[in-house]
């Protein structure tokens, strides 16, 4: 399988994002995996306020809404399919809460004691779901093809060590990270390597 060609044209949506912000990364990753061309402008405000997507002259905020908009242009229809059992919404909550915790930890210079406990609370349902999915033969939250739910949950899974939740405790999540990392078009951010 080869990566879909993402063409950046004058009419391509524009991401106003910040390179170290995991939500901005989620948008860049989503566009890259979906094969949707995306121009992006560095905007430090995104570090706190989150990324903004300018598409057809309209500003879209909220990572889930942005990914939904990008999925409209995706080459593969699987991206637009909502994950079963409300997992898109749950993953959105996990992603947002994780992002808030991570910002607090990075601003503090080192992980706070309480952050690991909250990371557990956030990521355990994800680990349980991914273990069940694996047993059912599916690599992702909704099935064999990644969808928006997987994108929303991915930074929390891959960067959980920023909150002192080490990956040896979450083998199903590790498998999920490996599966998405191997998907054509995958790209990285600081803290998430790509070496498949």
């Amino acid at each position: 399988m080869t990566a879909p060609a993402a063409l950046v044209t004058d009419t391509a949506p524009v991401l106003r994002g910040w390179g170290l912000d995991d939500r901005s990364y989620t948008v860049r990753l989503g566009a890259a995996l979906m094969g949707v061309g995306l121009a992006w402008l560095t905007d430090r405000r995104a570090e706190v306020q989150g990324p903004v997507l300018v598409r057809h002259g309209r500003d879209i905020v909220g990572v889930r809404a942005i990914l939904r908009a990008l999925a409209d242009d995706a080459l593969h229809p699987g991206w637009a399919e909502p994950a079963a059992e409300g997992w898109e919404e749950r993953a959105a909550v996990i992603g947002e809460r994780f992002s808030t915790l991570r910002r607090a930890c990075l601003a503090a210079g080192r992980p706070e004691t309480g952050s690991a406990a909250e990371a557990w609370t956030l990521l355990r349902p994800l680990e349980d779901r991914l273990a069940e999915q694996h047993e059912a033969g599916a690599a992702f939250l909704g099935g064999a093809h990644p969808a928006i739910a997987d994108l929303l949950a991915f930074p929390a899974a891959a960067l959980s060590h920023d909150l002192r939740l080490p990956h040896d405790l979450v083998p199903a999540t590790r498998r999920f990270i490996r599966a998405l990392r191997a998907w054509p078009g995958f790209l990285t951010m600081p803290g998430i390597a790509h070496y498949q």
């Binding site: 080490p166 990956h167 040896d168 083998p171 590790r174 498998r175 490996r178």
Partner: peptide, 17 residues
């Protein structure tokens, strides 16, 4: 310390004991 199948061929995985 782990399931055999959680260390796939050609990969590395962390563990703590």
């Amino acid at each position: 310390i782990a399931l055999s199948e959680d260390v796939a061929a050609g990969t590395a995985a962390p563990a703590r004991l």
